[in-house]
Design a protein around this nucleic acid. Structure first.
Lengths: 209, 209
DNA sequence: TAGATTGTTAATCGATTAACAATC
DNA sequence: TAGATTGTTAATCGATTAACAATC
């Protein structure tokens, strides 16, 4: 079982390796990569060796190969369909974000309960009435649900999503969703992140006095 | 020096205590809170004791008091003015998010370089031309800058922000910003978060085969 | 072969949990 | 005073870093 600490670092490796690849870099040693990313070379080698090791002694790592392997680990070689529940500003912003498509995340539907929003289009897809959610899940192959709802509704909707067969939820609501243990929840608590920044800023401001 | 692991948990404590307060709960023990939050009571007591301890033996913690103290730690008792650089979907969504105001984060300005967007209003504030950024920073008291730009422009803008006196950046661009060590950067890498979910989902799907 | 650099084991460090004395 | 529960020390666990043998 690989620790979430390691998994959490994979996307960053992936980003740097993608940049290196685009720059035409063919090979890189853990030492060079460590200087670029400001982490220890030891950590890099340990991380990769969790998955069997992608390098070669005396040579280092082939950038393109390593990039591809990490992409596969992250499941980016497969298509993942997703729906967005909550077509407010954030929901629409995520629906419009084109880069997800490039990574294999396909925008399939978006739902809201507000009649003023239902019927509007987000990247060519009409906002559906939330009452159609269960039917939509039954008829379509959806892997990931994104929740961009106020916290009051989020728990109920999560429940419906799980009943509809969803196993992975990307949650932007400020609640911890009580879902069965076999359902994945990845939280993005924006205000938590802002508060963390605020804490550190307050510390600095205190020191300056 | 308090570890970022502890600081990262403070907003979640704050959220639960706020809910308890709203529910009229007066006191709570680390044991009760631990059951609610699914963490160990030991960790709760250790965390709070980093800041001197907010409880009383034999009694537990006073919810309202503890809520207030954590709020102060998070700097929520002070006002923080912020600007958003990048008025795309995400930038506008954050500008429209009213809850930040409630926590003392005041939306002061929003900038873009796209003439089609400049002049539009986000929550009553006109989108300014990015060329006005330096002047705006000089004339206004801005604590936090939010970067919601494509990665290409993010590094340059971060530079300008730092030159303009900004010490805290909430970064949504998919790059690591190279800023001086006395400047805080809190990253929200949305696609990293989605890839983490994708990794874990792929694992489950593999097991099921 | 010699040099470079990985893969991997061992050592260290930090964070979490357990235990219990202090005290309300 | 007795019971409850914190604050705090000690033990454990896991993650990071260092070291080096394996090998290309």
């Amino acid at each position: 079982m690989i620790s979430q600490a390691v998994i959490g670092r994979l996307p960053r490796y992936y980003r740097y390796l993608g940049d290196l690849k685009d720059d035409g870099v063919e090979r890189i040693s853990s030492q060079e990569l460590s200087e670029l990313m400001h982490v220890t070379a030891s950590q890099i080698r340990q991380d990769f060796n969790n998955f069997g090791g992608f390098g070669q002694q005396g040579y280092g790592y082939n950038v393109e190969y390593l990039y591809g392997e990490i992409g596969k680990l992250l499941g980016l070689d497969k298509k993942h369909n997703f729906v967005i529940v909550g077509a407010g500003n954030l929901g629409r912003a995520l629906g419009n974000y084109l880069n997800f498509e490039r990574r294999g995340f396909i925008f399939k539907g978006i739902f809201d309960k507000d009649p003023a929003i239902i019927g509007r289009e987000v990247r060519g897809i009409k906002v559906r009435d939330i009452s159609e959610l269960d039917e939509f899940l039954a008829e379509n192959d959806v892997d990931i649900a994104v929740i961009t709802l106020p916290k009051t509704n989020a728990v109920d909707i999560a429940d419906r999503l799980v009943k509809g067969g969803i196993r992975a939820i990307w949650n932007f609501a400020h609640v911890d969703l009580p879902v069965p243990s076999d359902v994945l929840v990845e939280n993005v608590h924006l205000s938590d992140s802002l508060m963390k920044l605020s804490y550190n800023l307050s510390q600095i401001q205190k020191e300056e006095k």
